[in-house]
Design a protein around this nucleic acid. Sequence first.
DNA 1: GGCCTGATGGCCT
DNA 2: GGCCATCAGGCCA
Length: 208
Amino acid sequence: MSVTNQALEEFLSRSPLQVGPELLGARLSRQSEDGLVTVRLTEVEAYCGQQDPGSHAFRGPTRRTEPMFGPPGRLYVYFSYGMHWCTNLVAHEPGVAGALLLRAGEVVEGHELVLARRRKEVWNEKIASGPANLAQALGLDGASTGLDLASAGMHLELPAHAEEYLASGRVGVSGAGGDPVAYPWRYYLPHRSVSAYRPGKNVPNLNR
DNA sequence: GGCCTGATGGCCT
DNA sequence: GGCCATCAGGCCA
């Protein structure tokens, strides 16, 4: 479903818990100098504000996390494990931080460019599986954090109808925020591109 | 200034 | 399933 910028802004000006499931199946494209890539989002995770112990926004804004506190519709891209970039789409109600971590997608356009960016010879359904791989497929890095979608050359097309989805605890989130009972905020479609679940350290409720 | 940790991914067994 | 590279951010002194 194609929507106006204003409609998209309203769509994203809600809790990440509402936005997350509705983002599944959306087509996200990015036009850059080297070409166009479009993915169909198959896996996202919701991160809220200062009430969410798993969120980078938990301890309040910092230079890095400032975009999560800014207007919905911008990107929050952060560097992880010394070698990976991960992309979030900022979404929240007024006055609270929040974002959706884009964890996996099905590439529907720009296969050759994705192969080149991922430095692969052979196509694989999981080529954009996992947040760092998805960011790389879209050609995103820290240069894009804080930009709105248009400024990053991106366009989001929402799905025409809601898709049947699954939920689980968030991948690799340690401590209370990784609790799958309290924070079942990973949303995904039944699709081969979805990444493997991995619990964080010291997560409660794992054995329930 | 120093120390610890991580919203990971790829390679090895 | 296990291991670990690699470095920025965040916290504490």
